[in-house]
Protein backbone atom coordinates (compact mmCIF):
# COMPACT_ATOMS: atom_id res chain seq x y z
CA UNK A 1 0.00 0.00 0.00
CA UNK A 2 1.34 3.44 -0.96
CA UNK A 3 2.02 6.19 1.53
CA UNK A 4 -0.72 8.36 0.05
CA UNK A 5 -3.48 5.85 -0.69
CA UNK A 6 -6.95 7.46 -0.45
CA UNK A 7 -5.49 10.96 -0.28
CA UNK A 8 -6.48 13.74 -2.66
CA UNK A 9 -3.61 16.08 -3.43
CA UNK A 10 -3.20 19.37 -5.29
CA UNK A 11 0.21 20.46 -6.58
CA UNK A 12 0.63 23.92 -8.11
CA UNK A 13 3.28 24.52 -10.75
CA UNK A 14 3.22 20.89 -11.83
CA UNK A 15 4.67 21.31 -15.31
CA UNK A 16 8.32 20.75 -14.57
CA UNK A 17 11.03 20.44 -11.96
CA UNK A 18 10.03 19.83 -8.37
CA UNK A 19 6.30 20.14 -9.09
CA UNK A 20 6.37 17.57 -11.89
CA UNK A 21 8.37 15.11 -9.82
CA UNK A 22 6.07 15.64 -6.83
CA UNK A 23 3.04 14.75 -8.97
CA UNK A 24 4.80 11.60 -10.18
CA UNK A 25 5.82 10.59 -6.66
CA UNK A 26 2.34 11.25 -5.25
CA UNK A 27 0.80 9.12 -8.00
CA UNK A 28 3.34 6.38 -7.33
CA UNK A 29 2.28 6.43 -3.67
CA UNK A 30 -1.36 5.97 -4.62
CA UNK A 31 -2.80 9.48 -4.29
CA UNK A 32 -5.42 11.03 -6.54
CA UNK A 33 -3.42 13.98 -7.83
CA UNK A 34 -4.44 17.31 -9.33
CA UNK A 35 -1.63 19.38 -10.81
CA UNK A 36 -1.74 22.90 -12.16
CA UNK A 37 -0.07 24.79 -14.97
CA UNK A 38 -0.84 28.05 -16.71
CA UNK A 39 -0.77 26.88 -20.32
CA UNK A 40 -3.68 24.80 -21.53
CA UNK A 41 -2.78 21.30 -22.65
CA UNK A 42 0.81 21.21 -21.42
CA UNK A 43 0.20 18.58 -18.75
CA UNK A 44 -2.21 16.33 -20.63
CA UNK A 45 0.13 13.75 -22.14
CA UNK A 46 2.37 13.33 -19.08
CA UNK A 47 -0.56 13.12 -16.66
CA UNK A 48 -2.34 10.55 -18.82
CA UNK A 49 0.85 8.50 -18.83
CA UNK A 50 1.16 8.70 -15.03
CA UNK A 51 -2.51 7.80 -14.54
CA UNK A 52 -2.02 4.70 -16.66
CA UNK A 53 1.24 3.74 -15.05
CA UNK A 54 0.06 4.07 -11.44
CA UNK A 55 -3.68 3.37 -11.88
CA UNK A 56 -4.79 6.48 -10.05
CA UNK A 57 -6.43 9.75 -11.15
CA UNK A 58 -3.85 12.32 -12.26
CA UNK A 59 -5.79 15.37 -13.36
CA UNK A 60 -4.50 18.55 -15.01
CA UNK A 61 -5.94 21.92 -14.03
CA UNK A 62 -5.07 24.98 -16.07
CA UNK A 63 -5.06 28.35 -14.35
CA UNK A 64 -2.78 31.09 -13.11
CA UNK A 65 -2.36 30.82 -9.33
CA UNK A 66 -2.61 34.61 -9.05
CA UNK A 67 -6.16 34.44 -10.47
CA UNK A 68 -8.21 33.94 -7.32
CA UNK A 69 -11.47 33.28 -9.15
CA UNK A 70 -9.86 30.60 -11.31
CA UNK A 71 -8.22 29.05 -8.27
CA UNK A 72 -11.59 28.93 -6.55
CA UNK A 73 -13.14 27.17 -9.53
CA UNK A 74 -10.35 24.60 -9.44
CA UNK A 75 -10.84 23.87 -5.74
CA UNK A 76 -14.59 23.64 -6.35
CA UNK A 77 -13.90 21.09 -9.08
CA UNK A 78 -11.85 18.98 -6.68
CA UNK A 79 -14.59 19.26 -4.08
CA UNK A 80 -17.22 18.11 -6.57
CA UNK A 81 -15.11 15.26 -7.97
CA UNK A 82 -13.46 13.98 -4.79
CA UNK A 83 -15.40 15.53 -1.92
CA UNK A 84 -12.21 16.33 -0.06
CA UNK A 85 -8.68 17.69 -0.28
CA UNK A 86 -5.96 16.22 1.90
CA UNK A 87 -2.78 17.82 0.63
CA UNK A 88 -1.90 21.16 -0.96
CA UNK A 89 1.61 21.72 -2.27
CA UNK A 90 2.21 25.39 -2.98
CA UNK A 91 5.00 24.83 -5.45
CA UNK A 92 4.35 27.40 -8.19
CA UNK A 93 6.96 30.12 -8.03
CA UNK A 94 9.07 32.46 -10.09
CA UNK A 95 12.66 33.55 -9.70
CA UNK A 96 13.27 37.07 -10.95
CA UNK A 97 15.62 39.54 -9.36
CA UNK A 98 17.98 42.43 -9.72
CA UNK A 99 20.73 44.05 -7.69
CA UNK A 100 19.78 46.53 -5.00
CA UNK A 101 19.31 49.91 -6.61
CA UNK A 102 17.73 48.41 -9.70
CA UNK A 103 14.71 46.73 -8.20
CA UNK A 104 11.50 48.18 -9.61
CA UNK A 105 8.02 47.85 -8.14
CA UNK A 106 6.86 45.82 -11.14
CA UNK A 107 9.49 43.21 -10.35
CA UNK A 108 8.63 43.19 -6.65
CA UNK A 109 4.92 42.84 -7.37
CA UNK A 110 5.40 40.09 -9.92
CA UNK A 111 7.51 37.98 -7.56
CA UNK A 112 5.35 38.54 -4.50
CA UNK A 113 2.12 37.96 -6.46
CA UNK A 114 3.16 34.41 -7.33
CA UNK A 115 5.52 33.44 -4.53
CA UNK A 116 3.61 34.88 -1.58
CA UNK A 117 0.12 36.24 -2.26
CA UNK A 118 -0.97 33.25 -4.34
CA UNK A 119 0.32 30.92 -1.62
CA UNK A 120 -1.87 32.67 0.94
CA UNK A 121 -4.83 32.59 -1.43
CA UNK A 122 -4.44 28.91 -2.32
CA UNK A 123 -4.01 28.03 1.35
CA UNK A 124 -7.22 29.85 2.26
CA UNK A 125 -9.13 27.96 -0.41
CA UNK A 126 -7.69 24.57 0.54
CA UNK A 127 -8.32 25.14 4.22
CA UNK A 128 -12.02 25.57 3.49
CA UNK A 129 -12.15 21.88 2.58
CA UNK A 130 -9.55 20.67 5.06
CA UNK A 131 -11.20 22.47 7.96
CA UNK A 132 -14.44 20.56 7.41
CA UNK A 133 -12.55 17.28 7.31
CA UNK A 134 -10.56 18.16 10.43
CA UNK A 135 -7.37 17.14 8.68
CA UNK A 136 -4.98 18.20 5.96
CA UNK A 137 -1.41 18.99 5.10
CA UNK A 138 -0.22 22.18 3.43
CA UNK A 139 3.32 22.11 2.13
CA UNK A 140 4.97 25.32 1.00
CA UNK A 141 8.09 25.79 -1.06
CA UNK A 142 10.45 28.15 0.71
CA UNK A 143 14.14 28.22 -0.16
CA UNK A 144 17.50 28.21 1.53
CA UNK A 145 17.86 31.84 0.39
CA UNK A 146 14.60 32.63 2.17
CA UNK A 147 16.29 31.59 5.40
CA UNK A 148 19.87 32.75 4.80
CA UNK A 149 19.59 35.32 1.97
CA UNK A 150 21.73 35.54 -1.15
CA UNK A 151 23.52 38.44 -2.80
CA UNK A 152 21.66 39.63 -5.90
CA UNK A 153 18.48 37.87 -4.82
CA UNK A 154 16.92 40.37 -2.45
CA UNK A 155 13.41 40.08 -3.84
CA UNK A 156 13.33 36.33 -4.31
CA UNK A 157 14.93 35.81 -0.88
CA UNK A 158 12.38 38.15 0.71
CA UNK A 159 9.52 36.30 -0.95
CA UNK A 160 10.76 32.92 0.23
CA UNK A 161 11.42 34.31 3.71
CA UNK A 162 7.80 35.43 3.70
CA UNK A 163 6.77 31.88 2.82
CA UNK A 164 8.72 30.57 5.81
CA UNK A 165 7.04 33.07 8.14
CA UNK A 166 3.64 32.33 6.63
CA UNK A 167 4.22 28.62 7.18
CA UNK A 168 4.91 29.12 10.87
CA UNK A 169 2.01 31.52 11.39
CA UNK A 170 -0.48 29.34 9.51
CA UNK A 171 0.63 26.24 11.39
CA UNK A 172 -0.11 27.94 14.69
CA UNK A 173 -3.55 29.02 13.52
CA UNK A 174 -4.52 25.76 11.84
CA UNK A 175 -3.14 23.06 14.12
CA UNK A 176 -6.27 23.15 16.34
CA UNK A 177 -8.23 22.21 13.20
CA UNK A 178 -5.99 19.23 12.55
CA UNK A 179 -4.31 20.91 9.58
CA UNK A 180 -0.53 20.74 9.40
CA UNK A 181 1.51 23.40 7.60
CA UNK A 182 5.16 22.81 6.79
CA UNK A 183 7.66 23.97 4.22
CA UNK A 184 10.68 22.64 2.44
CA UNK A 185 13.63 24.91 1.80
CA UNK A 186 15.50 23.58 -1.21
CA UNK A 187 19.08 24.54 -1.91
CA UNK A 188 20.61 24.19 -5.37
CA UNK A 189 18.21 21.89 -7.19
CA UNK A 190 18.85 20.98 -10.80
CA UNK A 191 15.78 22.53 -12.40
CA UNK A 192 14.99 25.10 -15.09
CA UNK A 193 14.44 27.62 -12.30
CA UNK A 194 18.04 27.21 -11.15
CA UNK A 195 19.38 27.56 -14.69
CA UNK A 196 18.08 31.13 -14.65
CA UNK A 197 21.07 32.19 -12.54
CA UNK A 198 23.56 30.92 -15.16
CA UNK A 199 26.09 28.08 -15.32
CA UNK A 200 28.95 30.18 -13.92
CA UNK A 201 27.08 31.03 -10.73
CA UNK A 202 25.85 27.48 -10.40
CA UNK A 203 29.45 26.23 -10.47
CA UNK A 204 30.53 28.87 -7.94
CA UNK A 205 27.69 27.96 -5.61
CA UNK A 206 28.27 24.24 -6.01
CA UNK A 207 31.63 24.63 -4.29
CA UNK A 208 29.67 25.60 -1.16
CA UNK A 209 27.56 22.45 -1.17
CA UNK A 210 29.30 20.01 1.16
CA UNK A 211 27.63 17.01 -0.41
CA UNK A 212 29.31 18.07 -3.64
CA UNK A 213 26.37 17.78 -6.02
CA UNK A 214 23.28 19.60 -7.13
CA UNK A 215 20.06 18.38 -5.62
CA UNK A 216 17.59 16.52 -7.79
CA UNK A 217 13.86 17.20 -7.97
CA UNK A 218 13.30 13.76 -6.46
CA UNK A 219 15.35 14.78 -3.39
CA UNK A 220 12.78 17.49 -2.69
CA UNK A 221 9.75 15.47 -3.77
CA UNK A 222 10.72 12.77 -1.28
CA UNK A 223 10.56 15.20 1.64
CA UNK A 224 7.32 16.69 0.32
CA UNK A 225 5.86 13.17 0.17
CA UNK A 226 6.89 12.56 3.77
CA UNK A 227 5.17 15.80 4.82
CA UNK A 228 2.07 14.86 2.81
CA UNK A 229 1.85 11.42 4.38
CA UNK A 230 0.63 10.32 7.77
CA UNK A 231 4.24 9.46 8.64
CA UNK A 232 4.61 13.16 9.50
CA UNK A 233 1.27 13.33 11.30
CA UNK A 234 2.76 15.08 14.35
CA UNK A 235 4.97 17.50 12.40
CA UNK A 236 3.80 21.05 11.79
CA UNK A 237 5.31 24.52 11.54
CA UNK A 238 8.65 23.17 10.35
CA UNK A 239 10.90 24.39 7.56
CA UNK A 240 12.93 21.43 6.35
CA UNK A 241 16.10 22.18 4.44
CA UNK A 242 16.83 20.01 1.40
CA UNK A 243 20.20 21.43 0.46
CA UNK A 244 23.03 18.90 0.77
CA UNK A 245 24.55 21.10 3.49
CA UNK A 246 24.76 24.22 1.33
CA UNK A 247 26.53 27.14 3.00
CA UNK A 248 25.13 30.23 1.24
Amino acid sequence: MGLLEHKVCLVTGAGRGIGAETVRKFAEEGAAVYGTARTEGTLDARFAELAGQYHTPVVPLYFDVTDEAAAKRAVMQIRKEQGRLDVLVNNAGIMQDNVIGMIGYDLMRAVFDVNVFAVISMTQLAVKLMGRQGSGSVINLSSIVGLDGAAGQAVYSASKGAVAALTKAASKELSPKGIRVNAVAPGLIDTDLLRVIGEKRIEENLSHVRMGRLGRPEDVAGVITFLASDMSGYVTGKIIGVDGDFQV
Binding site: E68, A69, G131
Partner: peptide
Protein backbone atom coordinates in the same frame (compact mmCIF):
# COMPACT_ATOMS: atom_id res chain seq x y z
CA UNK B 1 -17.59 33.85 11.22
CA UNK B 2 -15.54 31.16 9.48
CA UNK B 3 -17.88 28.50 10.83
CA UNK B 4 -20.84 30.48 9.52
CA UNK B 5 -19.22 30.79 6.09
CA UNK B 6 -18.60 27.04 6.02
CA UNK B 7 -22.23 26.41 6.96
CA UNK B 8 -23.49 28.71 4.20
CA UNK B 9 -21.13 27.16 1.65
CA UNK B 10 -22.31 23.68 2.58
CA UNK B 11 -25.97 24.67 2.57
CA UNK B 12 -25.83 26.14 -0.94
CA UNK B 13 -22.90 24.15 -2.39
CA UNK B 14 -20.91 27.28 -3.15
CA UNK B 15 -17.51 28.71 -2.32
CA UNK B 16 -17.60 32.34 -1.29
CA UNK B 17 -15.01 34.86 -2.47
CA UNK B 18 -12.68 36.24 0.17
Amino acid sequence: HMGLVAALEDAFDIMMDT
